[in-house]
Simulated assay, not measured.
Amino acid sequence: MSYLEILGMIGLGIGCGVSKLGIPAALIFSPILASIYGGKASAGIIIIPILVSDLIVMYIYRKNADKKVVLKMLPLTFLGMIVAVIFGKYISDEIFKQSMGIIILIIGILTLMKSFKIDFSKLSVLFGFLGGFAAFIGNVSGPLMSIYLLNIKMDRDKFYGTRTWFYFVVNLVKATLYVVVLKNIHLETFKLTSVAIPFVFVGVFAGKYFVEKMNQELFEKFIVILSIMSGLKLLFF
């Protein structure tokens, strides 16, 4: 493993941890890893530290989850994942990466629309489907769920509890599909992510601290700009 790969895995671990607290770091590291390892391989690499971060945040917010919201979103999310499975199995790696770019651009636009106080709370069907598709294609669906949950007026603890339980179920199913369908999780994947996993803990607790302290609105706008740039890079470069 090169020094660049080690640095990449450290960044991945921290990014996965931070992203569980509603900070869409996946919009940054997901396209970077896709550029290095390819779209399908990077999706398999990312899912392992994501599952670890799910377990950590689930423990922190273990008493806070709106099960009705989770159950409402899951059916359409699984439908989106099924469509993504069919789509992802029969396309080239280049088209896979470009699809990830399109999804990231959509998320960026939706996030900008959130800044203008547009109400997404009645669009659970759209968010569920797009979330499932984006989750399978590129592990970049977190911002979609954040936008939806913030629009149904949840307090912070319930927001994190609901979001994490939802994504733990989704990510567990997704990891199984990666192994069975895309076959993009293997021994080399675990070797790479063994470096990332310890830094997931750093990311979770750093994210928890900063979410409570920093100006989240300004940070979200900064992330949106980076996400749109990342999406354009995957589409055209």
Rank of each mutant, 00 (worst) to 15 (best):
K20T: 14
S124W: 10
S53E: 01
I106F: 02
L76V: 09
S2C: 04
T111W: 02
P31C: 11
V195E: 01
F166A: 09
I103A: 08
Y160S: 11
A65V: 13
V181H: 12
M113D: 08
Y37C: 11
L235Y: 04
G88Q: 01
F29G: 08
G231L: 11
I228P: 07
N64E: 09
F210V: 14
K153L: 03
E217D: 10
K233T: 10
R156G: 00
L112M: 14
G22P: 00
I147K: 02
Y178H: 15
D66L: 03
L21G: 01
V179R: 04
S141A: 15
L112T: 09
I106V: 15
Y90L: 10
P31L: 11
L76H: 06
Y160R: 01
Y178I: 12
Y3S: 10
G161C: 07
Y90I: 10
N171F: 13
M9C: 11
L79Y: 09
L76D: 08
D93E: 15
P31F: 06
G11M: 12
P198M: 12
G22H: 00
I118M: 13
A43D: 12
I228H: 04
M58Q: 05
I104P: 01
V125H: 08
S230R: 03
L4Q: 13
K183M: 11
P143K: 07
K68A: 12
I60Q: 00
L4R: 10
F96N: 13
K72P: 05
F237I: 09
A196I: 04
I95K: 14
F96L: 12
L123S: 02
D119V: 10
A175N: 08
M58H: 05
F120Y: 10
K63C: 06
A34Q: 14
I104A: 07
I82V: 15
A135C: 13
P31T: 10
F205T: 11
G203T: 07
L177V: 14
K191P: 06
A84E: 06
A206E: 02
A65C: 14
M73I: 15
I46A: 08
F78L: 15
